[in-house]
Design a protein around this nucleic acid. Structure first.
Lengths: 132, 132
DNA sequence: CAGCTATTTAGAACCATTATAAACTGCAGA
DNA sequence: TCTGCAGTTTATAATGGTTCTAAATAGCTG
């Protein structure tokens, strides 16, 4: 019931699958990073019924388009998503492929001096790669 | 002959294929961004013989490991590489998927205030997404 | 030149993601 | 409550970038 309005207000029908995925993604103490496969596993663990992989892909993309999830730009064979949609950046641990949030206040202001005619900046994302 | 020493000094045998790929990648006025498919096409256009796709993958990865190429962290189904290995950042035009270099001097210093125990920073990469 | 190892190659395999098309479901209007 | 339609879900197939394989080839050292 918690997420019905959120979905309806976005023009997404509050189906059973979407509501269950909302529970897994948003009914948590902390935000987190995930790949589709990791999310699929989390869903399997938390709910009794089965949600098709295609539905998980569809839902994640729908939520991303509505701004409830963000993709994280990392070079990996899988796509990483973030339930933290605030303006922030990431450490990327090269050793194990794990991401760590860097709050905006951890990075300091970023001043882009160059402009491209007719274009505006949609987002600025910083990836800090870590090694041992 | 221009690239033989470069390869040998890196522990890479200067094979015909690697030398030809060097010509395409490095014997240019400007640096550029590319995907493997784009590079394959460029190679086809510039040389008469055929280089196997597997060799192109192998070579690009070998060059990346040696620091002659950099991967660019962008969410795309293909991996983007850059022949510009200086410390710099990128605009990413969401409309057409094209990248534009942002020199380090175009961005200003980036101050990462947070530290992770036992890890050091290998690189800091900024991706500035552009929309209309 | 001989022999060893690195490299190249074509093709198969892999695997994340997307497309398909049929079944199902939420919901607005009767 | 019932009906019907558009939006969703689903299993499965298809796609496509990348990696693997194992046999052939080519540098290189002695």
């Amino acid at each position: 019931m918690k997420y019905i309005d959120k979905l309806r207000n976005s023009g997404l029908r509050p189906t059973k699958q979407r509501l269950q995925i909302c529970e897994v993604l948003f009914n948590t103490e902390r935000t987190f990073h995930f790949t589709i496969n990791e999310l699929e596993q989390k869903i399997k663990d938390k709910i009794d019924n089965k949600i098709s992989l295609a539905t998980i892909y569809n839902t994640v993309h729908a939520f991303e388009k509505k701004g409830y999830l963000k993709q994280i730009p990392v070079n990996s064979n899988q796509t990483y998503f973030d339930t933290n949609i605030t303006d922030h950046h990431h450490f990327y641990n090269l050793k194990d492929g794990k991401l760590i949030d860097l709050e905006k206040s951890d990075v300091g202001p970023i001043n882009i001096k160059r402009k491209i005619d007719g274009k505006k900046i949609k987002s600025i994302e910083v990836l800090v790669k870590l090694e041992d």
